[in-house]
Amino acid sequence: MPKHLIKRWMPDHKTLKEHKHLRLFGDLLLDANLWHLNRRSAAGAFAVGLFMAWIPVPFQMLLAAGGAILFRVNLPLSVALVWLTNPLTMPPLFYAAYVVGCHLLGQPSQHIEIEFTWSWLTSVFETIAPPLLLGSLVLAILSSITGYVVVRGLWRLSIVRQWRNRGADKE
């Protein structure tokens, strides 16, 4: 069940191999482990993808692809999971990371008027960056571990049910 559900949502491996930004990985994309979908590769892909989704940089997909190659887990799933933080969800998720970071650092969160200028960005970088980066790291680690454990558990549960159904069908 989880395998069929995940396969339905995964991007095509041929499309990813030809993606202009992923070409920089070259022959590393030929590793068969990057394209297999099993309990280990899916759980690892969830861990890598969810971790990279919390990293506040614009090239999360490349980081996820690099992580998938490094850990030899399912690459399409890792890359697809970084879209958890898309333009719609990014502001509330990174604000939550900022609040978590402020709480961990023991400092109050600030109300900040956002301007899209370089001078504004450099002026607030010192006050916003430490709690944002700490909160992002903590939430990345928690999401990664949770995703890994949940996928492994659900996959195992699905396999146990299949085995039970096979036994019931024989009787």
Rank of each mutant, 00 (worst) to 15 (best):
residue 115 E to I: 09
residue 148 Y to L: 13
residue 36 H to S: 06
residue 114 I to N: 02
residue 63 L to P: 11
residue 77 L to N: 02
residue 47 A to L: 07
residue 154 L to C: 12
residue 22 L to P: 04
residue 113 E to W: 02
residue 60 Q to H: 07
residue 62 L to Q: 14
residue 77 L to R: 00
residue 16 L to C: 05
residue 118 W to I: 08
residue 84 L to W: 07
residue 162 Q to D: 15
residue 113 E to P: 00
residue 87 P to T: 07
residue 168 A to Q: 15
residue 98 Y to T: 10
residue 142 L to G: 11
residue 25 F to E: 11
residue 70 L to H: 05
residue 152 R to C: 11
residue 110 Q to N: 11
residue 10 M to G: 01
residue 140 A to W: 10
residue 105 L to H: 03
residue 104 L to K: 07
residue 152 R to S: 12
residue 170 K to P: 00
residue 97 A to I: 04
residue 103 H to L: 14
residue 24 L to E: 05
residue 96 A to E: 01
residue 23 R to Q: 15
residue 63 L to R: 08
residue 133 L to N: 01
residue 119 S to G: 02
residue 158 S to M: 06
residue 169 D to K: 08
residue 123 S to F: 04
residue 76 P to H: 00
residue 111 H to R: 12
residue 18 E to R: 14
residue 171 E to Q: 10
residue 110 Q to T: 15
residue 111 H to M: 14
residue 35 W to V: 03
residue 165 N to E: 15
residue 153 G to I: 01
residue 167 G to N: 05
residue 101 G to K: 08
residue 112 I to T: 10
residue 132 L to I: 12
residue 70 L to D: 05
residue 34 L to F: 01
residue 8 R to I: 07
residue 141 I to H: 07
residue 86 N to V: 04
residue 158 S to W: 13
residue 2 P to T: 15
residue 86 N to T: 07
residue 6 I to E: 00
residue 167 G to H: 08
residue 11 P to S: 04
residue 126 E to Y: 12
residue 89 T to W: 09
residue 81 L to V: 08
residue 159 I to S: 13
residue 23 R to D: 01
residue 34 L to T: 03
